[in-house]
């Protein structure tokens, strides 16, 4: 059962009616509703296409946060083989908001690291809704170091509302952990490619997305703060998140223009959650293409180009 977002209510009504008709027809064999149901289906399809062709930035945020959107775990299961999770920061704990380990991508050994939000109440709590604590970033640093040592490309899948704002997280150096993770991204002499699959929330995202190539799914978002947070700071009213989302330029389309991301991955009509397999496959194709671009580059060149890429970033603004 698809969960509808609030802006999809008209769609939910039409699809609900079509379903009702069909249920009625199943109960009463003499009734023929094929024509009417098909008309409703066509209407629903047209509406869906219309809705998703013109998603406002705030609606994109809602799609990016959709509970049924494929998460890190789904991508790892579908795109990688021999996934061998590696746990812990060797210091304090294992943070399940960040998952990662050795795996094969097209038979090639890689290190995959990603943020996992969970998909039911229990797993969401377990993964802390994808909000990592310092241990999560320190685990990522550890895995990146290992990848660097053994010459394995690193693939990161970003999906987090942001780093966890908690007492313990602060006491154990949340900011230092994020800074070190970003620093590590800029130090490793192996290819580092990243896909923002849902929410790219602030420092918690950039800590894993400081990569040679960064791609974004069409309806994912990447921003310095949530629109609600931005609205409460600048508008003094968290309810102004629609305006904030517009102003912030957090969509894949805008970020491509700003050259903050290198590629946009189209999503199936109605978002990744309505066509999970197609979305996952498209991410796989993009990862393949981005890794191919890095083939044959020497460690020093990789590091130099990655640093230069970030030094140049933003030089032209939106006018570019």
């Amino acid at each position: 059962m698809t969960q509808y977002l609030d802006f999809e209510k008209p769609l939910a009504e039409i699809e609900g009616k079509a379903e009702e008709l069909r249920a009625l027809a199943r109960a009463n064999e003499e009734m023929d509703v094929t024509g009417e149901a098909a008309a409703l289906d066509a209407k629903a399809a047209a509406l869906l296409s219309d809705l998703y062709q013109h998603l406002t930035p705030w609606r994109k945020c809602q799609v990016a946060r959709h509970p049924q959107r494929p998460h890190c775990r789904d991508y790892i299961d579908a795109l990688f083989t021999e996934y061998t999770p590696l746990a812990g920061d060797r210091n304090f704990a294992d943070d399940l908001a960040v998952m990662g380990g050795l795996a094969r991508f097209d038979d090639r050994p890689v290190m995959v690291i990603g943020q996992e939000k969970g998909d039911d109440t229990k797993s969401r709590i377990q993964h802390n809704f994808g909000m990592a604590r310092p241990e999560g970033y320190r685990k990522a640093v550890r895995l990146m170091e290992m990848a660097d040592k053994f010459g394995l490309p690193v693939i990161t899948l970003v999906d987090t509302p942001g780093a966890y704002p908690g007492k313990g997280a602060e006491e154990r150096g949340q900011s230092e952990a994020i800074a070190r993770s970003t620093e590590k991204c800029l130090q490793i002499g192996v290819p580092l490619v990243s896909v923002i699959i849902g929410e790219g929330g602030s420092g918690g995202a950039v800590a894993l997305a400081t990569a040679d190539r960064v791609a974004m799914l069409e309806h994912s978002v990447y921003s310095v703060i949530t629109p609600e947070g931005c609205a409460s700071i600048l508008w003094k009213d968290a309810e102004k998140m629609r305006e904030a989302a517009e102003a912030m330029r957090l969509t894949a389309q805008d970020l491509l223009k700003l050259k903050v991301v290198d590629r946009m991955i189209p999503e199936p009509l109605g978002g990744a959650h309505r066509g999970r397999e197609a979305a996952i496959a498209a991410v796989g194709d993009t990862l393949r293409a981005m890794l191919a671009e890095m083939d044959g580059k020497k460690p020093k060149a990789l590091i130099k180009e990655r640093r230069q890429k970030f030094l140049n970033m933003g030089a032209q603004g939106l006018a570019a």
């Binding site: 800074a179 620093e183 950039v206 703060i225 102003a247 933003g314």
Partner: peptide, 21 residues
Amino acid sequence: ARMQEGILSLMQMPRTTVAVQ
């Protein structure tokens, strides 16, 4: 971060980290 520069303010995290390096 400078809210009004949105994602570009976020990109100062890697940029300044390169400077430190």
